[in-house]
Design a protein around this nucleic acid. Structure first.
Length: 281
DNA sequence: CATTTCACCTGGTGGC
DNA sequence: TGCCACCAGGTGAAAT
């Protein structure tokens, strides 16, 4: 998500939405299609960032100018609205030529003043698109602590007294913002902790190892442009490379890169969960 | 209330 | 080749 947000930010900031088209599928829309199109048309992209797993596009006032705005003018404009995108499992945000072939499962197309288009493509339709008018609703912030910046004590407090498995706790977006299945498994491996351990029973040392592992894994993954397991790509259609660094995720039966023991797969919180039975206690 | 399960979708893969 | 079971970056409603 961080990779996607950065890519989209670099490509659309300063550009203006001259027309918005939304497909007829009901599923991906938190805000009705017509309302989103109406809210978006004419607005300028001020910036794009990530909060948790959500990508937030800050939007300026509507205007009829047909040219993209220079950066120095952008800072003067008030943030009036947001377009919040959640990619689900298979969602992609792509910026490209407006005459590029439209892929199957394209649910939204925003035509930009620069002549390009921002497109939302999502085969499984688990993604969500929401338009927020900041005149009537608050600016969007994902719940949960940010794993990249959370302090030691705050991190430990998240799990205190909890009986659920630590893996399930990591995936709970109300506790930690933005940790998904890949990075939960990868950070638990690096911290040497079994995914089924009760969250509230981890020692102070284990919690601190986990916090550090999570931060390192996320930083490393962001540096490599994310994990491209099947079709994940950034705003330019480029794949990430962190999947080459996976030590357990989707490596069932393959030897552990540390001790050679075959990686095991169990079902936990309804998700495939991968770990090394020797390295993780 | 905390926690678990399941439905929501499409597509790819691998076994028979 | 076809058919079927199973798997996949996530969540939120319903059940326990």
């Amino acid at each position: 998500m961080e990779t996607v947000a950065r890519g989209v930010d670099a490509r659309v900031s300063g550009d203006r939405i001259v027309a918005a088209w939304f497909g007829s599928h009901r599923q991906p829309f938190k805000t009705p299609a017509a309302q989103q199109a109406h809210g978006l048309e004419g607005r300028v992209f001020l910036s794009v960032h990530r909060t948790g797993k959500h990508i937030v596009c800050e939007l300026g006032p509507s205007a009829s100018a047909r040219r993209p705005l220079p950066a120095e003018d952008l800072a003067q404009l008030p943030i009036e609205a947001q377009w919040v995108v959640h990619l689900g499992m298979t969602g992609r945000l792509l910026v490209g030529a407006s005459d590029a072939p439209v892929e199957p499962h394209t649910h939204a197309r925003l035509a930009l003043a620069s002549g390009r288009e921002l497109r939302f493509v999502d085969p499984r339709r688990f993604g969500r698109l929401e338009f927020r008018d900041l005149g009537s609703v608050a600016s969007f912030v994902a719940p949960g602590a940010e794993p990249l910046t959370v302090a030691r004590d705050e991190f430990a407090a998240l799990f205190r007294g909890r009986k659920l498995a630590i893996k399930a706790a990591l995936l709970n977006q109300n506790l930690l913002a933005g940790v998904g299945n890949i990075y939960a498994d990868e950070s638990l491996f690096r911290a040497g902790i079994r995914p089924r351990r009760a969250a509230g029973r981890l020692t102070r040392d284990e919690l601190e190892r986990l916090r550090q592992a999570l931060r390192q894994v996320l930083r490393h993954a962001i540096r490599l442009g994310g994990s491209s397991v099947s079709d994940y790509v950034d705003a330019e259609g480029q794949r990430g490379f962190f999947q080459l660094e996976h030590r357990v995720y989707l490596r069932t039966g393959e030897p552990c890169r540390v001790c050679g023991t075959p990686i095991r797969r169990i079902l936990l919180a309804g998700r495939g969960t991968h770990f090394c039975p020797r390295c993780q206690r």
